[in-house]
């Protein structure tokens, strides 16, 4: 796809992600019988954060927060230009590791717990994406995501179980119940704010924007399961997102060890089963 399209995609992603986050808050409020904030609430929050005093505990922290955002943008670029899916997975992992390092670079124990959990989340979720890359290879004969458009049939038809595994890690990536662990963003105050405890002002805003980009990325991965015709893929991604919000509201949170067990047990199991079944 063209260069201009990719640049436009990168610029539009934070807005799209912000709107989705606002929609999430609205729907969550409605599910709980509240009126809820306006849909553009996340933008108010981030703009306000840019106007607040920004403190940092050391320079590494600032560097890692920028790295988080830039690698996230990089991962999105790789995905939008339909590059090698494996490289995309590495870029995404790099971004998340940067976030964990930003948490580790401070001395707050809450940050450290948050970062530890973040690393475990990466450990739990990333292998499923690698399996997805493998499935891509089996289906189209290359790791290039562009191959999907030439396939003639949706990836979902041959790999429904991997799709289920991706839905599972969607919860982990979106940091939602039952796996809302690393920043305890929704379970208020359990470990203060986890990884983001020591971020403030503009740096918190940047990490928030990076999280929106991450949301768009992971929904794009869902979209890849049905690229032709494209609107089915978009509907699929939206449906997954809405289901995620409902799941977030009806589930209690699980322990971190259960998350790893579920992601490895079910995620690995389903993916492996699907790949075996496909290659047989």
């Amino acid at each position: 796809m063209s260069f201009a399209f990719s640049v436009a995609g990168i610029l539009a992603a934070p807005f799209l992600g912000g709107l989705l986050a606002g929609l999430d808050r609205k729907i969550t409020a409605r599910l709980q019988g509240r009126k809820g904030p306006p849909i553009i609430q996340p933008f108010y929050d981030v703009i306000k954060l840019f106007g607040k005093e920004s403190t940092y505990t050391n320079r590494h922290q600032v560097f890692y927060i920028y790295a988080y955002l830039l690698w996230m943008a990089m991962a999105l670029l790789l995905l939008l230009t339909l590059q090698d899916f494996l490289v995309f997975v590495f870029a995404l992992t790099f971004a998340e590791i940067s976030l964990a390092l930003a948490g580790f670079s401070t001395r707050s124990p809450y940050s450290h717990i948050g970062s530890n959990r973040e690393i475990l989340q990466i450990l739990a979720s990333e292998p499923v994406l690698v399996f997805l890359a493998f499935a891509l290879y089996l289906a189209s004969g290359s790791f290039m995501a562009g191959g999907l458009f030439l396939l003639g049939e949706p990836l979902l038809r041959n790999f429904p179980l991997i799709f289920a595994a991706v839905l599972l890690i969607l919860t982990i990536k979106m940091r939602k119940s039952p796996f809302d662990l690393s920043s305890s963003a929704h379970a208020h105050q359990e470990i203060v704010r986890g990884v983001t405890t020591e971020f403030s002002g503009r740096y918190l805003a940047l990490s928030e924007i990076a999280h929106w980009v991450e949301l768009v990325i992971i929904l794009f991965v869902v979209f890849l399961f049905w690229v032709d015709p494209w609107w089915v893929g978009i509907l699929l991604a939206l449906a997954a997102y809405l289901a995620e919000i409902v799941i977030d509201n009806i589930f209690a949170r699980l322990k971190i060890s259960w998350m790893v067990a579920t992601a490895w047990g079910w995620g690995f199991g389903l993916s492996l089963l699907n790949i075996l079944y496909f290659t047989m």
């Binding site: 704010r193 983001t196 405890t197």
Partner: peptide, 21 residues
């Protein structure tokens, strides 16, 4: 709580002093 719901004004309860207004 749903009855008063200050989140409709954008206010959320946040546990971290560095984030709070």
């Amino acid at each position: 709580t749903p009855l008063y719901d200050i989140e409709r004004f954008g206010a959320i309860s946040i546990g971290c002093p560095k984030h709070a207004d």
